[in-house]
Amino acid sequence: MDIKIEGITKSYGNQKAVNNISFEVKTGEILGFLGPNGAGKTTTMKMITNYIAISQGDITIGGKSVKKHADDLKKHIGYLPEHNPLYLDMPVMDYLIFCAQLQGVTKKDLNKRLIDMIVLCGLDREKHKKIGELSKGYRQRVGLAQAMIHDPQILILDEPTTGLDPNQIVEIRKLIRELGKAKTVILSTHILPEVEATCDRILIINRGNIVADGTAHSLRNKAQGQEVLKVKIEDAQAPEVLDNLKQLESVFSVTTLDEATNYFQLESQPEKTSKRNIFQLCVDKHWVLTEMTPVETRLEDIFRNLTMN
């Protein structure tokens, strides 16, 4: 089921939490929702799950508007809210059964779904404990289990990996990737490597507006523009290398990183690459090229550039 968000706005008093944003998420796509605190991520998710009203615009899921068909749509959505609220006085099993029954899992499938979720989320040893007795990480697993118990078409996960240990994070990411092949997933996070590891597409929002939309790769290209390379050349004198590099027609600028080891960083002319030229230069001069690394703009830098005002 595709999710289509058309010009939604949400205002709290005079403040616009979400300001006229539109995007689409297709089946089989995992969308990473990034943004600083208070950017409007959670508000958008709450509107998709029809928990709060949409001030303007509309959201359609599988062609149906959430304003009109919320009760039909809810059983296709698995939702993990921010802060993961749970009934602390309930045992894990009872809670999962409760959620499954509310979401209309049939008696026939109930046992299988329960076992699947317990195994998938690693809850086997804790399944008879009360939720209130569990640590934060285990509660997070219960939160994920309840979101997926009815095998929903759409998963909305608000910071799904907070409180998990590194092993669990890897497993949950793998799980989300797996699920994302056949389902529509939107997840929000502050952890940038997580978006790269799990998401097909990244959406950065700031102060209620979309500031970037694309794959990690395309965002990098856009942010960077020119090729940046780090090169290390041996069997040569630093000043001579510097001069020769500067004379290459594709090179825009060169800076010396370390004179002792002949380590340079060079920036190419827009839309040109210097890799072949550098190699050819070294061949001609009988120098040894020991390192040539493309420098990628880190996602953190892109994020900072877009969201720092």
């Binding site: 799950t49 029809n50 928990y51 809810k74 959505i77 939702y79 609220p85 959620c99």
Partner: peptide, 14 residues
């Protein structure tokens, strides 16, 4: 107060 109402009302219930 605990926020569980959000989880409950986003399930397939009215």
């Amino acid at each position: 107060k605990t926020g569980t109402i959000e989880l409950l009302l986003t399930k397939a219930v009215t």
